[in-house]
Computed example of a mutant assay.
Amino acid sequence: MRRPAFLSPDPDSPFPPADAALRQPDGLLAVGGDLSPQRLLNAYRHGIFPWYSEGQPILWWTPDPRMVFRTEGVRLSSRFRRELRRSTWQIGADTAFGSVIKACAGTPRPGQDGTWITDDMRAAYLELHRLGHAHSVEVFDVDPSGESRLVGGIYGVAIGRMFFGESMYSGESGGSKVALAALAFRLREWGWPLIDAQVENPHLSSLGAESWPRSAFLENIDLLTGLPEAPGNWSQRFGIIEAAALAEVRSD
């Protein structure tokens, strides 16, 4: 019986090739190692991400097929667009990373009991955020007095011109969809063509995610992660997007 590889304690040690991943459970490639910035960035560059529960060792995955959004392909229903036209929500980036990842930690992942964002995971991505590699997109409900309340968000890792989505959440209905649509809109403007969505599920498919063979995904990210983009905070670069404006953005 094939078993996943055990990683060396050296954070710079290489991962096994993707075709060494198990078929059952799909995509399990390796066990162990750590969540240091160099290990995490190396993993994402090779289409690998950590996903495990409290009490488990660190598990590293590269599923086949892979769920991927084209940034011009995020779909919002006609009904949801009508609702957005009346929305007072505003979307920014990297102003509340800690709050977004905390909220995502309370959102169950399909097929897994309890949270998969452990305290160690949160600490690791907060460090990546501090270093300018991890980013959040936040959706705020802004009242007439100017007070704002976080109602949705998404976070992930950016390398080159590739964004690897990790998790999203809705504090109010539609919050995560607005965060995703705003992220895709801005990345499309910047010339970033793809968002990694990791594992297949019907909700992502309904929003336009596509199921790609792992080989095609890896070929694309090998190119995109090598393109020059400096890490750093996205708050000013991303700016503010009015949710109502997203109602007029059409997918291709």
Rank of each mutant, 00 (worst) to 15 (best):
R3W: 10
A18L: 07
A20R: 13
L22A: 03
R23T: 12
D26H: 11
G27D: 00
G32V: 07
G33C: 11
D34W: 09
L41P: 01
A43Q: 04
R45E: 15
W60R: 01
P63Q: 10
P63E: 08
F69N: 00
F69S: 01
R70Q: 10
T71G: 03
S77W: 12
S87Y: 01
W89S: 12
T95R: 15
A96G: 09
G98L: 09
I101P: 00
C104M: 10
A105M: 05
G106L: 11
R109T: 13
I117F: 02
D120I: 05
R122E: 02
R122D: 01
A123C: 06
Y125C: 02
L126M: 09
G132N: 07
V137F: 03
F140Q: 09
D141Q: 07
P144N: 10
G146R: 11
R149F: 13
L150S: 02
F164R: 01
E166D: 03
Y169S: 03
S176H: 08
K177D: 02
V178C: 09
F185A: 10
E189R: 14
A197F: 03
E200R: 06
E200W: 07
N201W: 03
H203M: 14
L204E: 03
R214M: 10
S215I: 08
S215Q: 15
A216V: 08
A216Y: 10
A216I: 07
A216M: 12
N220E: 15
L223A: 06
G226H: 08
L227C: 06
P228Y: 09
A230W: 13
A230N: 13
R237L: 13
I241N: 01
R250H: 12
D252A: 13
